[in-house]
């Protein structure tokens, strides 16, 4: 682990350098250990692909004390890496040009049929690497290289809620209407962020996600909208 200062009350722990389930597992283990070690001195944690941002209460403790407690906690945690844990969540997706405006372009750029794009996207099991950007926005990886696609040069000002999208080798379901530059390939009727639901999000960092293709009728039956 490499521990850097991030800000006046924040440290960032790097547990690797690339996107992999193994490194993500280490981040998960470190997050649990740091949470236990810092107790009430901890304000917030942001686990991401290969790093863990740790924000502490500067009125209760200091940098030196927090750094040494983090080092010790992470050392202990690495012995019991939890990369194999986490739930598998199935998310239904209606993949079609009418629900995914970029599906046809993505397929033709990749020299694949639309059905092949759908198969490649839904055959893979993804890992939730990070949550951020917007409430409930889960970064899932990694997408099959054949359907990886760069972000749009001009982002859309309005991406609908439930849009299933690809950017490079990441994929995500938009939790709410928002601007966005990812390639849209379908729509998911499951709400990714619902403040009134329990749990608020169907996934958390470290979970596995599989997409299950559904047809238009099933999508509408599940409460999906087309607009």
């Amino acid at each position: 682990m490499i521990l850097h200062t991030a800000g006046e009350n924040a440290l960032i722990a790097y547990l690797g350098e690339e996107t992999s389930p193994e490194i993500s597992g280490r981040v998960q283990a470190a997050a649990l250990a740091v949470e236990a070690a810092l107790g009430d001195d901890l304000v917030d944690l942001v686990p991401s692909y290969a790093s863990l941002l740790i924000i502490y209460d500067v009125m209760r403790t200091d940098h030196m004390s927090v750094s040494s407690r983090i080092r010790e906690a992470v050392r202990g945690a690495q012995a019991t890496t939890v990369s194999g844990e986490g739930r598998t969540v199935i998310l239904p997706v209606y993949y079609a040009p009418e629900s995914g405006e970029d599906l046809e372009t993505l397929a033709s750029n990749a020299n694949l049929s639309i059905d092949e794009v759908i198969r490649l996207h839904s055959d893979m099991e993804y890992r939730v690497y990070a949550i951020g950007f917007a409430p409930g926005y889960a970064y899932l990886g990694q997408v099959d290289e054949r359907i990886a696609a760069p972000r749009l040069s001009t982002p859309r000002t309005k991406v609908p809620r439930g849009a299933v999208a690809i950017a490079d080798r990441q994929t995500a379901v938009y939790p709410a209407v928002s601007p966005g530059g990812w390639n849209l390939i379908g729509r998911c009727p499951v709400r990714m962020f619902d403040p009134d639901a329990d749990p608020i999000m169907p996934v958390s960092v470290g979970d596995r996600v599989r997409f299950e293709p559904i047809d238009r009728q099933r999508y509408l039956d599940l409460g999906g909208e087309l607009s």
Partner: peptide
């Protein structure tokens, strides 16, 4: 960089 947590003031 690989996306990572951003603290206040970054």
């Amino acid at each position: 960089i690989l996306s990572e947590g951003i603290c206040y003031g970054a």
